[in-house]
Structure formats: structure tokens, C-alpha cells
């Protein structure tokens, strides 16, 4: 027992970083986890290495640019076979705000298998540590030949702390008036509206969201809000399930019977202390006009 304990103490887990063309936000925060005591990866018995051959865990940042691909794949090929790969920030997972550029070749998953995602833009150091811990569990489980200890997909509680970091967005369908301003302002294409049989459905994908909060800022009714929940690390198998969604049900229009999205007046008044003429107007408009009212200028 004694020897074993000493053994793990001497041989730390090696972290190796690959930057595939990031804005450097994730990289600067990773630097913090090697420089600032409170966030030092040493507390997880990890250490950064400059050699790909030594990598136990590979941390990948950035949206994978066309220009960087060759070098990224070369480095990755040098890492040992049994490493665990972590996508840091939303860039490698979905391209984040850079998705759709001629110069971006991601998502990373097209080229190499990812084990853990750490959403964030950039994730705070606490989230990085949580994600690395998750990677360690996977690594441990693989060595033992079993499953990771934590049942996959269970909702982790964020540590309570004093800082209200901008975390996961939350959607209250009851307050939504379907003006779609949120989708209009979202740089990351993280919000989708789908018209269904019974209502309009909003889906917000946390692996595309960059947590800027602009949707919430421009939302006229407060249907979208920024929460402090920053613990979003998850196994890559759950990449596409990291969503916030809600359905705004149709009701027949009092006038013509056409199914419309009603605007619950009580809720609107709850959200705004004083009745707001803009909100009152939104209520009486059909969705096309609401879009026009919020967005204003014609789209090109």
C-alpha cells in the first residue's frame, strides 16, 4: 500500500496541450492552471508536459483551422495510444462563433476521437479542473477495465462560490413571445426555432453557445436568462444532448382562429415593474410583425 501511494505521488499524470487556432482565451486560462496556486493542476497530481510522447491527457483548444490541421494531426499522432482527449472550450466541439468560416475545418471530432468536452468561452479555471478530473476518472476506469465511477450524464451541482460567472442559459417558454431576437443576435448560431404541430420549439445548444448573454440582454421579456451554472463538462458521447429547450404552445387567435403564440400578460407585467409600451405592442402583433418590431431592419 505504502509503495503504491508513493508511486502515484512520484508519477504525475501528464497533460499536453494542442492549440488548433484558438482566440487564446482557453490557452491563457490553461496557463493559469499551471501558474496560480489555487487552480494549479498539481492538486490533481497532474503536470504539464512539452512532449507529445508523454501525454496522458491531451487538452485541445480552438476551432481547428485549415492551416493548423496538418501540424495538429502530426502532434496528435505522436501521443500515446491510451491517452484521454479533452476538448477545451466550445470551439473544438462546434466551432463556436467561428463555425462556417472558409478557414475553419472543425469540428475536431471529424479528425480524432474526443472523450470529454468542457464547454465555456473560455471556461473558468474551476471548470477546467472539473473537466480534467473527469478525464482522470475515464483514464482510471480504462486502466481498471471498467466504467468511470460517476454514472454518465448525472447532473453535477456547481460548487457554490461568490462569483456569479456567466454560465448555462436557461429558457422560460412561458415568457417567450417568439420574436426570435435571441436567434438574431446570437453570434454562435446556438439557438434554433422549429415550428411544430402544437407550438414553437426553442433549442439552445450549450456546446455552441459562447455564454455571452447577448440573447438574454436583448430578450424583451426575460424568457432567456444567464444562470451561474458553469459545471458543464460532460463525456463527449453526450455532446448533442447538452441542450436547453422549451415549447411555446399555440393558442387559437381570438379573432380569426389561426393558431398564434399568445403573450401571457401577467408574466410580462411580472418581468417589468412598470407596464412597458413596447411589450404591450408585442402582445397584439403576429409573429412576423414582432420579428419586424424587434429586429427592425430588413435582413440581407
Amino acid at each position: 500500500m505504502h509503495i503504491q501511494a508513493e508511486g502515484t505521488a512520484i508519477k504525475p499524470v501528464r497533460l499536453f496541450r494542442i492549440n488548433t487556432g484558438s482566440c487564446n482565451g482557453c490557452d491563457v486560462e490553461l496557463a493559469v492552471t499551471s501558474a496560480v496556486t489555487e487552480f494549479d493542476v498539481e492538486q490533481l497530481n497532474c503536470r504539464y508536459t512539452e512532449s507529445a510522447h508523454e501525454a496522458d491527457i491531451v487538452l485541445v483548444t480552438g476551432p481547428l483551422t485549415v492551416r493548423a490541421r496538418e501540424e495538429v494531426l502530426r502532434l496528435y499522432a505522436e501521443t500515446p495510444r491510451e491517452k484521454v482527449t479533452v476538448a477545451v472550450g466550445v470551439c473544438p466541439v462546434s466551432g463556436g462563433v467561428f463555425r462556417g468560416s472558409y478557414a475553419v475545418d472543425g469540428p475536431l471530432e471529424r479528425y480524432l476521437p474526443v472523450d470529454v468536452n468542457i464547454p465555456g468561452c473560455p471556461p473558468r479555471p474551476q471548470a477546467l479542473l472539473a473537466g480534467i478530473r473527469e478525464a482522470l476518472e475515464i483514464r482510471h476506469a480504462r486502466h481498471e477495465g471498467g466504467e468511470p465511477k460517476r454514472a454518465p450524464g448525472d447532473r453535477k451541482q456547481s460548487d457554490t462560490d461568490n462569483f456569479p460567472a456567466r454560465g448555462r442559459l436557461s429558457f422560460d417558454a412561458g415568457a417567450c413571445v417568439d420574436c426570435r431576437m435571441c436567434r438574431h443576435v446570437c453570434a454562435a448560431g446556438a439557438i434554433r426555432f422549429e415550428e411544430g404541430e402544437n407550438g414553437v420549439r426553442l433549442t439552445l445548444w450549450h456546446n455552441s453557445c459562447v455564454f455571452c448573454g447577448l440573447c438574454s440582454y436583448y430578450c424583451p421579456t426575460g424568457a432567456l436568462s444567464v444562470t451561474g451554472d458553469w459545471r458543464l463538462d460532460h463525456p463527449a458521447a453526450h455532446t448533442f444532448r447538452q441542450v436547453e429547450r422549451g415549447e411555446v404552445p399555440y393558442a387559437p387567435c381570438a379573432g380569426c382562429g389561426e393558431p398564434i403564440i399568445p403573450a401571457a400578460p401577467q408574466l410580462l407585467h411580472d418581468a417589468f415593474r412598470r407596464p412597458n409600451p413596447d411589450i404591450e405592442r408585442l402582445k397584439s402583433l403576429c409573429p412576423a410583425c414582432r420579428q419586424q418590431m424587434s429586429i427592425g431592419v430588413p435582413r440581407r
Binding site: 462556417g100 469540428p107 434554433r192 445548444w205 455552441s208 448533442f240
Partner: peptide, 10 residues
């Protein structure tokens, strides 16, 4: 790419 990803999300 965007479409392919969203298809999977939905």
C-alpha cells in the same frame, strides 16, 4: 458543418 451538427442536436 452547421447543418450536420444541428441535425444531430435535434
Amino acid at each position: 458543418t452547421g447543418k450536420a451538427l444541428w441535425d444531430k442536436v435535434l
